[in-house]
Design a protein around this nucleic acid. Structure first.
Lengths: 348, 348
DNA sequence: TTGAAAGCGTTACCAT
DNA sequence: ATGGTAACGCTTTCAA
């Protein structure tokens, strides 16, 4: 199987009777700048096109010390939320003639560390990361700005890294307020992974609204402990078994909601007649649920897009990311409450 | 901003008072093979670890003419189906110490062509592609096997390329049979993009079962023309407006189903009381729909995994992909019908 | 207006 | 048991 040889710049130059550097210049649009004869340029361009030449980007990457590639690390590519982030990042990257190298950390800190080092060894020009957990030491090195990195969705307050996330506290407040305004006082928040910033902020918002409305916080009001279907399911089952008389559930992401729904369903409890429910994130086809869910939705598309744009600003050195500077851009995008009637108005 | 210099093999060698090639050998585990002194190896390994050295993969890629990267081209990363494919491909790739370069062709043939050439210029060692449409000329070049490529989900019979897809005809047959066995004879199939192999095979299966059951095919029995929510919605609306008296719908993917559901809902028609429905693909949370849908589901995870494994076989030259050979592996994975009671039993 | 040559960080051939 | 040197394919400095 004779590995067919790719056309190289040198071959092209030989065919043209020119030096590689002349050809390189023309092909990179630096013909004017180097005052290469109009005629020569024509000849080169034409021939290159004819022979279908395109440069070896690996060689170029080595020489220029930049690969035109960015890395993206996500905890679960099969979750629509992250998939949408991936899509918008990919599109922005491609628009910039960059390639996107995607890794799925499978919610494992070890894998995250591993792929991160893999990507860095591959000399990516930038990194977008949705860090998996609560440990952040391995991200410290990114504070140096080489390569530039932007965090999405989750971040660490003690890390001087730019990020794009949702206004989680605000979203939780809106959701909780919605419940309270409908007369609910016995609300259980099914949380995600404790100590992640996302979870912390959402809980903050939740408690704040309780407090403002003089609802005494009790321990049973926070249950669960993971952003998974399983966690939502188990937590809800346990609540029901223990006979807590809550009237409403606030689930901190789509998966937890699905799990809770399953448990409620098994217990023959209906939403919103028996239990009211508000959840973070949307669910595909939620409009066709037997009771469509009221949601606090984020915009993963915008998160990804914004993060990618920030990253390219850093890569192209717009926006002054010098590490001494104070300007580490940190963004909280607004969330939106969509009322789909999964909250019952309680009698006063 | 002084770009901090990365540690190179040469620096390491200098520090050790050895030549780069010795260090390189040790680090690549070829110490034994080249009979490098046990002591030296120790020294090298230790020092490298101490200094946290890791090789520049771009340079290595150039030198070795292989980048340890594979490309993945998908029409829409935000569709769970493709996202799941992406995830499993990414995982297999990472297990093999490869990186995955993902591109979203946004269902545009032009973009597909563009990213394909981008990926090839980046010298990826292999390609997995879910081609967007009906044109395949730009894929012809991949028949040469350099770089090796595997198609997923969609493919072209006139192209000698390996692929992994679902048994679409079989799936459609199962679905249609299910409907017929429940007494339905006025069935409308809401198709996807005409002329794509996926669509063609599903229609084949559909018609075959009609024929076997002596149900005369009529034109209104195939409607729509795209794998999108919009297409499903519009087609269903039109059907209703025109007053065709169908009793069942077979939708050829999840998005079409969602669109059809929306139209039915607006017309205050219920599933399955007024209209029965079976759809290809699953939908997140379909179990909680007011009427859960009976589905013919594929396994995107398996498709991706299988394709990735096939690709690595080709890359590592297992499985003899020499282009003279007859063995272009083409696989149809089985589908599964999950009955969720969205088909009503009609009186005889 | 063009070219020679160095260099990016590796690996591999051929010496010693 | 180890090292010198070329080579991978490109860009860029300096020279002509």
């Amino acid at each position: 199987m004779a590995k067919q040889v790719r056309l190289t710049l040198k071959m092209l130059a030989d065919e043209l009777g020119l030096s590689t550097c002349t050809v390189s210049r023309v092909l990179n649009g630096k013909g004017q700048q180097y005052r290469i004869a109009e005629k020569t340029m024509q000849r080169v361009l034409e021939h290159a096109h004819e022979r279908g030449f395109s440069p070896n980007l690996v060689a170029r990457g080595l020489r220029m010390k930049q690969t035109q590639a960015v890395g993206l690390v996500l905890p679960d590519l099969s979750n629509t939320f992250f998939a949408k982030i991936a899509r918008s990042v990919a599109n922005v990257a491609n628009q910039n003639k960059f390639t996107l190298e995607v890794c799925d950390s499978q919610d494992s800190i070890d894998l995250e560390i591993e792929v991160l080092s893999l990507l860095r060894n591959r000399q990516v020009d930038g990194l977008i990361i949705c860090p998996v957990g609560i440990d952040s030491e391995h991200l410290r090195i990114l504070e140096s700005g080489a390569p530039p990195a932007v965090l999405v969705d989750r971040y660490f307050p003690n890390l001087r890294l730019p990020y794009v996330a949702s206004d989680n506290a605000g979203g939780a407040e809106a959701a909780t307020r919605h419940l309270v305004e409908h007369g609910h006082r016995k609300i259980v928040c099914l949380q995600g992974l404790p100590n992640t910033i996302t979870n912390v902020h959402r809980l903050d918002g939740f408690r704040r609204v309780l407090q403002v409305n003089k609802i005494r916080f009790r321990n049973y009001m926070i249950a669960g402990g993971g952003f998974t279907i399983e966690s939502g399911y188990q937590a809800t089952r346990k609540l029901l078994e223990q006979g807590h008389s809550f009237t409403a559930l606030l689930t901190l992401n789509n998966l937890i909601a699905l799990g809770a729904l399953k448990a409620l369903h098994e217990a023959r409890l209906n939403v919103p007649e028996d239990v009211s429910l508000v959840t973070f994130d949307t669910i595909e086809g939620v409009d066709f649920f037997s009771s469509p869910l009221t949601t606090v939705s984020q915009s993963p598309r915008k998160i990804g897009e914004r993060a990618a744009i920030m990253l390219f600003d850093l890569i192209y050195d717009r926006g002054g990311q010098d590490r001494g500077g104070q300007a580490v851009e940190q963004i909280h995008l607004p969330t939106r409450l969509t009322n789909r009637q999964s909250v019952r108005k309680l009698p006063v």
